[in-house]
Design a protein around this nucleic acid. Sequence first.
DNA 1: CCAACAAGTGAGAGCGCTCTCACGCCCCCC
DNA 2: GGGGGGCGTGAGAGCGCTCTCACTTGTTGG
Lengths: 349, 349
Amino acid sequence: MHGDRDPRPTLEAVAAHAGVSRATVSRVVNGGRGVREELREQVRRSVELLGYVPNIAARSLVTRRTGAVAVVIAEPETRVFSDPFFAQQLRGISRELRERDMQLLLVLIEQPKDYERIGRYLSAGHVDGALMFSLHGADPLAAMVRESGLPTVFGGRPGWPGAETESGLLYVDTDNRGGARQAVAHLRARGRRRIAVITGPLDQTSAQDRLDGYHDALAEPDGAPRQPSPLVAHGAFTAEGGETAMAELLETDPEIDAVFAGSDLMASGALRTLHRRGLRVPEDVAVVGYDDLEPAAWSEPTLTTVRQDVEGMGSMMAELLLRRLDLRPGDAPPAPVVTEARLIVRGSS
Amino acid sequence: MHGDRDPRPTLEAVAAHAGVSRATVSRVVNGGRGVREELREQVRRSVELLGYVPNIAARSLVTRRTGAVAVVIAEPETRVFSDPFFAQQLRGISRELRERDMQLLLVLIEQPKDYERIGRYLSAGHVDGALMFSLHGADPLAAMVRESGLPTVFGGRPGWPGAETESGLLYVDTDNRGGARQAVAHLRARGRRRIAVITGPLDQTSAQDRLDGYHDALAEPDGAPRQPSPLVAHGAFTAEGGETAMAELLETDPEIDAVFAGSDLMASGALRTLHRRGLRVPEDVAVVGYDDLEPAAWSEPTLTTVRQDVEGMGSMMAELLLRRLDLRPGDAPPAPVVTEARLIVRGSS
DNA sequence: CCAACAAGTGAGAGCGCTCTCACGCCCCCC
DNA sequence: GGGGGGCGTGAGAGCGCTCTCACTTGTTGG
């Protein structure tokens, strides 16, 4: 019942079995360079036969590498976590790490008091690097990471003051601005002339960038008359927020004929408000979302939205971090990555 | 740039600084029993001053404890992972583990070939225990775990052949059968007399249990005439599945006046089919879901559903595992936990 | 033919910690 | 007053691994 997992063979045992020294077995186990093919094969057989698995604790004690990467998800609001987004990124990350035999340590931050502890933890050398998500504005973690020197890759462009000019900062972002621009340009191409925007919290660069893209698109000359002024409301990336934002917008300007929501969730909220007011989508008001989450394809009508390769972003983050970890003194450091965003046209526009 | 995280003080350094032996510092760091209060305080000061953090690799090398728990999510279908369910459970787990200074190793299984590797990994002593989710029928992991003797707690009652009688099996489940019974009883109380059910994949106990609950409720005498026969369709726990299942049901029996879907997702699919056929909800057909996920509250009409304390289940799983790990020879082993399910009545019934 | 060198292998130290054991001290009891 | 027991402390072994260094062999060039 108790599981006799202990009599695990050690390097020593394998060495004895294969009739070689510990050092040789170690060499074989770690790549096998500099060992005669014949011997190598013999060691491999012994490893197989005895079911040898290296003890990572012992290994990392001497190599000073833990073989683990922390994935830190700061979650001041519950919202963040019911988001399929993370799940998908995590998946990409997991795949990449698994290929490199690295472990994924999941660190969830819920309360402010967790911060200090986790900062300590991360700088204590328990992991080789960290992946961090959705930091808001000047998140304390950012500073901690910088001080500790822990190699870190951020999910989404960090937005703390001075982040743009910080050198060596690593992140994977999607082209939020370009995606938003596409969305709004699409609405204009459809003949919409009073296009509103519902933004997320502007202390996240993704929300700010999407808003910027909206402005970009409005400013682009396309032959049609310019929209008198931008129409902006804030929705906090939640469905409820989208609902009230849409209501506000209609209050401000009942003539609105299109709305670009900074997330599918907010778009779904907006849709509800429009339904309730008896406005038809897309006939009266066209709606475009952002993210292309599953529900986007199910909503009534199906949602035109902007898709990003979420899983790919996850694996890129991991890859970037691994490259950074493998960096040799002479090498050029890796650079941030910005992935493409693509408009998916469906029924709502 | 490179982060000079290395000159971390060791036990030795703290001992020297405090003028005591390594052993004493170790004692203080690990609970401080058997050390004079005065000395203890002095050691604590040194620890604080030098910023000492124990090297877990060294520690676990000798204690044979890793201080880590694997959370294994087998995910043959993508569906599983876009499910807010896991996210919430993970959160409960994370909270519990954090309190005990244990680490959460996330292990995602995507491909069949991952199984063997992960089985090896788990039995290799890299973690002290494992938490496993949503195993289908006779998942290979179950056998691996059993063989390796790795302490494990399952999320959801395991369903492999013989699992019921296996002693020492630990899991946390919700009262699926009771929840389903409540749902269907509620429909009958509302005067519905032709109640259909849309089930999930029956190789998962949760789906089977909910179906059993449906049958239970139909069999309960309540004064009203008995429904001639059960009406069952399968929906695979997806929205699309719910959609087609509902269509099949209406095909079979156009007189259906209520449907109990084994998940909110399937209920939302059913809702779409009903809409499309011009059937009104709840006037013509009442709908009840299961899970109480966010979208349940947003659908049109809002969905009557069965709620379970997902986050609580997560922390219970962790707690159960930790109790199991701390078990001393004489102690009574912990037992599985089944949490309550509660019907939430909303607009669709 | 021997020095110079490369390649393959083994011996041994040591990573930072825990834990057993022995030692010294003080208190108590006969 | 001496022996026994408890408590607090330190010395030292050893967890399983990697890595440096020295050694042995085989190969090459002068």
